[in-house]
């Protein structure tokens, strides 16, 4: 004889009551989640969907959007002469600035981890540049690296060296921005410092007993132990490089230094000198907020979205085997 299930003995009134309680619980969950849901919908889902939608339209914000199919994407990929230089410049940033910042931040963190006295002061000093607003920092660097009047070139001159034209030179403008990026590396450095200090001492002692030297201890103990943080720094660095705007925009305008028609700024100053600092987000800004070709800017944004996703995905997939995790082999 089949035993009666508990459900079978619950009267229908109780089942209805439980269902009501379930709905109330769901309602409460929904209510508690509503700030996130509203925020996600308004600030995340809607802008993305609207951007994707507008990328198929000609839209100047004055007249109603007009459907033009894939014309924006066609113009982006085939006709706009500034897209590929902007992509190349952005890739240069990813290839040079991201590793440079990570290596520099790690080196500073390792140095600070070894300091015994005055560690707090030293950490503060190295972190301070990260607190300087990017625009102010850029203005400062353009001044320091002014080829004619800047103290850097004057100092080089005293040593008998002729300094480059820095932000005024197409060859040196991007490296100048890298220098600026390395100077303001405090945020990454602090994370590295925390992770370096967190590496168990016994691992170093064991490696030392095994005869490992300084470099070997760094290579085989420090790096594996902080590898998740390195991955984090790479991913964040790449995303920041894909969004690189403020410093390049300010530096180009200040270094260009001259106005055209009685004080107005020309589009040619974007990316000054010779387009060497024309990065993808600057192109996007130009399309959206100077030319007001919102449909085209939306297409540029969608491409950036796909590229950012793809790059991040590839980095995470490729680095999985290189990341040390507790209980797994590095």
């Amino acid at each position: 004889m089949r035993s009666l299930g508990r459900r079978d003995v619950i009267p229908s009134a109780r089942r209805a009551s439980r269902r009501r309680a379930d709905w109330r619980r769901r309602g409460l969950v929904l209510f508690l989640m509503s700030p996130w849901i509203i925020g996600f919908t308004v600030f995340f889902a809607y802008p993305i969907l609207d951007t994707a939608y507008l990328s198929f339209f000609h839209y100047d914000l004055l007249s109603p959007p007009r459907y033009i199919g894939l014309d924006n994407y066609r113009f982006l990929l085939h006709d706009d002469p500034r897209v590929w230089p902007a992509i190349k410049n952005t890739l240069w940033l990813i290839a040079v600035m991201v590793p440079a910042r990570i290596v520099f931040a790690l080196a500073i963190a390792l140095m600070l981890a070894r300091i015994r006295s005055g560690a707090g002061v030293a950490r503060t000093i190295f972190y301070l540049p990260a607190l300087v607003p990017p625009v102010a920092a850029t203005l400062g660097f353009v001044y320091l690296l002014n080829p004619a009047t800047g103290p850097v070139n004057k100092g080089l001159g005293v040593l008998g060296l002729s300094g480059p034209n820095w932000f005024q030179s197409p060859e040196w403008a991007k490296p100048s921005l890298v220098l600026l990026g390395m100077w303001a590396v405090g945020n990454v450095m602090v994370i590295f410092l925390a992770s370096v200090l967190d590496v168990p001492r016994q691992l170093y002692e064991a490696a030392e007993i095994d005869g490992a030297g300084t470099f070997q201890r760094f290579r085989h103990v420090t790096v594996p132990a902080i590898s998740p943080v390195i991955l984090f720094a790479i991913v964040i660095g790449v995303i920041e490089a894909l969004q690189y705007f403020t410093q390049a925009y300010v530096a180009a305008h200040i270094a260009a230094g001259q106005a055209s028609q009685a004080g107005s700024v020309t589009t040619s100053e974007l990316g000054y000198p010779l387009g060497s600092t024309l990065f993808y987000p600057i192109l996007l800004y130009d399309a959206a907020f100077r030319r007001f070709t919102m449909g085209y800017a939306s297409a540029l944004t969608m491409v950036l979205l796909v590229v950012a996703f793809a790059v991040t995905y590839v980095i995470i997939r490729r680095s999985r085997s290189l990341i040390y995790q507790e209980g797994t082999q590095s």
């Binding site: 600030f43 951007t51 959206a288 996703f309 991040t312």
Partner: peptide, 18 residues
Amino acid sequence: RRGLTATLATCALALVVA
């Protein structure tokens, strides 16, 4: 999510700059 965030952040940045 990161990719999406990157794009949104780019738009937000551009908006802020504008």
